[in-house]
Design a binder for these strands. Structure first.
Lengths: 235, 235
DNA sequence: AACCCCTGTCTGGCTGGCTGCTCATTCTTG
DNA sequence: CAAGAATGAGCAGCCAGCCAGACAGGGGTT
């Protein structure tokens, strides 16, 4: 599953909301035994449910989608990870060997580093600052996930979608001439799977928002003109 | 907000699913400067939105509800924390002073310990095993939260409720003569706020499940007769 | 150039939230 | 201890909003 390559120099788009120093953590993890720098093309699988959970990942560039697949074929998105997110943390839990239960897919072209959980544990024991940095990374991940829960408890789909768009703005937003562009190529289907709705409903609601002049969609990239005004739009 | 007391000896009900050694972490945190052992009565606030985020908490006994309050007066539950959960992690994030944005309330009678984030950072730098333990605690918190996201993306309320009950079984379940009892006094309103529904709907759905012979409710405590059968009941 | 995925739209049907009420239970206070 | 208050539980009818299913057009990818 892991295929090391020589990476092009990381050109980080620089997310202003991200306080943790992912760069430092990168260099530390890179020095661990068994670590690797991986480039994954959009749509390719990083790990599958049932794979042994033995590596920890740090997403350097791009977005990763964690999802759960049901027997019915339905697939729901559990998290859309942004740059500097730690994932595969299951492998950090003590002792007993466990298996992945999520499906991790590169949502965009992804640049990430990974290392065996055992190496990471040793590194933490060797230098406490590593643990502190990872703790901070994981803390921000907790907050990110909780925001998503907030999004999902909204009853009506309209509020849910708006809330989700604001989350995406925070995590993947880049300034545009006019507002903020979500730097992901999102299909309506992908949005539906993330907020528990259907493709048709998303199409309709996005159309409504467009007609209201709240946003623009250009080649699958959404630009929010005024996030503050959008936030006020809650019913 | 913090009122130290002498605690009665911790009688931990012992959650089998919990792998981390919360006990060790407890003794470590207790030795930090500025730490305190707090007893909080059911319904009392632990921190409010807007409070400065400067302490980290470890829940030793009981359950804590993290919620977000909206201007409309509506309140949604972001997490129901079980024993050995770390919370208040916002204060661990680097540098810049920040404020709580959640409302933390004791959902049951709570026994918890807390320490200033600065002390915790120092402790981690002093002994790397502290960082490792906290990392594991936070990892399990991430997984717990992601399960909740899975619950919330279910479209129909019936599936959502069932999924939520199973989560509660995992986190708060204690064996009963007949099945598993969720060791929380849950009002229908509280459930509604956790899964984004309304009190009336929860009443109806719980009634349905009772009539189907899946569960029993006795003085606000729910007993699931057969969690496996309940899990199969998904549409 | 051909294919396929994505988008946009419509109709019908039904789930589930809302309103307004009563009764039961628990908590509080004199 | 008892009475009142507050909260919770249960019921019914109405209606909005969402899902299902189907289909046509279009743009991107290979």
């Amino acid at each position: 599953m892991s295929f090391s390559q020589t990476a092009s120099p990381s050109r980080s788009p620089g997310n202003v909301t991200d306080a943790i120093s992912g760069g430092t953590l990168t260099t530390i993890i890179r020095c661990l035994s068994g670590s690797s720098l991986d480039l994954v093309e959009r749509g390719k699988t990083i790990f599958l449910p049932g794979d042994p959970a033995e590596r920890v990942y740090l997403l350097r560039c791009g977005a990763v989608r964690l999802s759960r697949v049901y027997e019915s074929g339905e697939e729901i998105t559990v998290a859309l990870l942004r740059e500097n997110s730690l994932f595969g943390v299951l492998s950090l839990l003590t002792g007993h060997r466990s298996d992945r239960f999520y499906h991790a897919v590169a949502f965009t072209r992804v640049e990430m580093i990974s290392a065996p959980a055992t190496s990471v544990r040793q590194a933490i024991e060797g230098d406490a600052r590593v643990g502190l940095m990872m703790l901070q990374g994981l803390s921000s991940r907790v907050l990110q996930t909780e925001t998503m829960i907030e999004t999902l408890t909204h009853r009506d789909m309209s509020s849910r979608l708006v809330s989700f768009l604001l989350v995406l703005c925070r995590d993947f937003g880049v300034p545009a001439e006019q507002g903020i562009t979500i730097d992901l190529r999102l299909s309506h289907q992908a949005i539906a799977e993330a907020i528990g709705s259907t493709r048709v409903t998303i199409t309709r609601l996005l159309g409504d928002l467009r007609n209201e002049g709240m946003l623009r969609i250009d080649r699958k990239k959404i630009t929010i003109f005024d996030p503050v005004a959008l936030a006020r739009r809650f019913s």
